[in-house]
Write a protein that binds this DNA or RNA. Structure first.
Lengths: 119, 119
DNA sequence: CAGTATCCCAATGGATACTG
DNA sequence: CAGTATCCATTGGGATACTG
């Protein structure tokens, strides 16, 4: 652990990977490629603007690809890139932790808040 | 992967774990307990206000503990909790990915920007 | 369908100074 | 040392409406 140092660039990349929607979009795309509207349905609270911003950023960082399918009419789908796929395992670990420990965290919060209220 | 769904609470927890400084603070504390001023030195760009906010939130979520040492004069140190320790492995995976792939990401960005500039 | 365009608000977080 | 207090600039992101 000691040898792994993150410079400022690294921290900014973390910011971009972990903004409000990115992890969830990535998670959805690891499962399978999806279209814009499918992502919107999958992430109910996201607005088109936020989703666009998020997708562009992930695309720019090379973890997601925007593919124009030459169907008729053309369809556009987003898929995970090879680079993005390499993120799947760390991502799963992280999301898995959240799912597994959400209850514990909630309990900790309650306890913390009560302690503060006592004072 | 399919079975792991994140509700809104989960997404908000992600937000709190992955805000601008939290991951780096956690990383630093996984290494060893540190005092406020040590953390400031370790994370050069953080202001005291931001660090406080971050620590309080991590404490509230139960992953960090604020310990008052009964030395003379008293010292305060922050240490990782048991719950926080369980985050270490996912955290390492995530930060490791960033360190390992930062160059690739940079290249992808350059490529993306150039393609856009062409148009 | 896959976005873009506007408007707007709340919150993040930086700079700085101060305190028990 | 370990913060708190203020002020302020930026921006992320929601709501909504519109478009090729």
């Amino acid at each position: 652990m000691a040898g792994m140092e993150l410079d400022d660039e690294g921290r900014r990349l973390l910011d971009q990977l972990f903004d409000k929607w990115s992890l969830l979009v990535l998670h959805a795309l690891c499962d399978r490629s999806r279209r814009f509207s499918e992502l919107r349905q999958h992430l109910p609270a996201v607005t088109p603007k936020s989703l666009t911003t998020c997708l562009r950023r992930l695309e720019r960082n090379g973890v997601v690809e925007r593919v124009v399918l030459s169907t008729e009419p053309v369809a556009i789908e987003y898929r995970i890139s090879r680079l993005g796929r390499s993120l799947e395992s760390p991502l799963r670990a992280m999301l898995g932790w959240v799912v597994d420990h959400l209850d514990t965290v909630e309990a900790a919060r309650t306890q913390y808040d009560e302690r503060r209220a006592d004072i």
